[in-house]
Design a protein around this nucleic acid. Structure first.
Lengths: 167, 167
DNA sequence: ATAAGCTTTCAATAATTATTGAAAGTTTAA
DNA sequence: TTAAACTTTCAATAATTATTGAAAGCTTAT
């Protein structure tokens, strides 16, 4: 497999993965392109390489910047804006985990907490609702906490020994 | 908040969460409904409570059964089929993590491995592609392994102490 | 102040994905 | 064997989501 083919394969795979976890294709592909680029790219570069429109590029770059994954790079003497993405995968994972927790998990946890706190009127169905949503609440909280801790305290002794233990 | 309101809130929240990780709304809502039901439900029951069509119900129940989350329950003397979902959240998490790993993560890992194995022609861009996809490959593999181990070895001593450490 | 060079916005449109409902299929009881 | 009771399938349609491109908005140089 040659460079060009490998590159295209990587970008398209990463793009379709994005769709699966709630990020659109263009956004994931732009990030992928920047991720393997050796230098910052301009909007023109991105539009051309991914064959997408200017508007699409602009909107998705903005979203990536909101996530904190992509940053503007100003090149002295150049009028155009250039973009780069976080290149360290550990840091990338940390940012993504944090954002997803904030945007998706926390709102659900909030509802689970509310629902599991309704007053117990003694009926079987109410007891079941409380019991099951409480169980989901505990699970979600724990999973979320673990995820965040793990990606945050990257490579400290806990993580290192954990990885050894479970690998 | 009364039972009915709490129930609706739970089902709709769980439903929209589904969309976020690649499961459609109806599928997630059916699972949610069964999850808090005290007894198995028939297709009619589900259709009525969620206000969705027969075809939709049938197709999504089938998918949930493919995932191994929902099972048919035959009630003696009854012609209709009844359905229940896995009620233990730990087991539910285990099934979902395993299925998602198989369906989504593994195919990506495969591509990352292929791409990161192209021959190094010495150019800077090829070196970068190899380096970055290799880093993603390692991260994804480790994260996937951790996820699977954690949900599989539920509540063994490692998990218990880990939870204590990071909570 | 004006124009060139670039970015953002957003209504229109395209593409994708979910849902319906009626016909076809299956199983059981009589 | 027939019919009633139920489930599945799938083409048509609806709903949602992504994309375009042209106009409006900035910013900088002259």
């Amino acid at each position: 497999m040659e460079y060009q083919e490998a590159k295209e394969k990587f970008i398209s795979t990463w793009g379709s993965l994005g769709t699966l976890w709630g990020i659109n294709k263009a956004m994931a592909q732009i990030q992928a392109l920047l991720f393997i680029s050796t230098k910052p790219l301009s909007m023109e570069d991105i539009m051309e390489q991914l064959q997408i429109s200017r508007g699409n590029t602009s909107m998705n770059l903005r979203q990536l910047m909101d996530w904190g994954i992509v940053t503007k790079e100003l090149i002295p003497g150049e009028r155009k804006e250039y973009f780069t993405t976080e290149k360290d995968v550990q840091e990338l994972a940390r940012i993504i985990a944090k954002e997803r927790s904030r945007r998706e998990i926390q709102p659900v946890v909030k509802v689970l907490k509310e629902v599991s706190s309704i007053k117990d009127d003694g009926t079987e169905k109410t007891k079941e609702l409380i019991k099951q949503t409480k169980a989901l609440y505990d699970l979600t909280e724990t999973a979320d906490a673990m995820l965040n801790k793990i990606v945050n305290q990257q490579q400290n002794w806990i993580t290192k020994s954990l990885i050894k233990l479970i690998k």
